[in-house]
C-alpha cells in the first residue's frame, strides 16, 4: 500500500503550524506590527500559483480567461510582496537601541 501524497502535505502543514506557534510566541511584542506586515508579504508567495496559471497554454492564445486571472493575481501579489517587505524594512530600520549617553 502506498501512502497518498496528500498525507505528506498534511504532515508538512501540521508541523508548520507547530513551528509557527513556537516561533511567533518568541516574537517580541514591540515587533508585532512588523510581524503582521512580513507575514503579509510572505503569504504572497501565492504568486507562484499565479505565475503557473498565467504562463499555461501559451501556444494557442495568450489571454485565455484562466491566464487573465493568473496575471491579475500576479499584480495583486506583487503589490504585496514589494510593499510588504519594503514597509517592514522601513519599520525595522527605525528600531534603535538607546545610545550610551553619559550620566
Amino acid at each position: 500500500m502506498e501512502i497518498d501524497p496528500f498525507i505528506f502535505r498534511l504532515s508538512i502543514f501540521i508541523l508548520s503550524i507547530f513551528i509557527g506557534y513556537y516561533v511567533v510566541w518568541s516574537v517580541t511584542p514591540s515587533l508585532h506590527t512588523p510581524l503582521m506586515s512580513v507575514t503579509n508579504a510572505i503569504s504572497s508567495v501565492i504568486i507562484v500559483g499565479a505565475i503557473i496559471a498565467a504562463l499555461a497554454n501559451q501556444s494557442e492564445k495568450i489571454f485565455e480567461t484562466a491566464n487573465i486571472f493568473g496575471y491579475l493575481a500576479i499584480v495583486l501579489a506583487a503589490v504585496n510582496i514589494f510593499g510588504g517587505f519594503l514597509v517592514t524594512q522601513r519599520m525595522l530600520a527605525m528600531y534603535k537601541k538607546k545610545k550610551k549617553d553619559k550620566k
Binding site: 508538512i12 508548520s16 509557527g20 511567533v24 507575514t39
Partner: peptide, 11 residues
Amino acid sequence: LIITGALVGSS
C-alpha cells in the same frame, strides 16, 4: 505555500 500558509495562519 503550505508552509507559509500554516506559519501565517498560526501567527
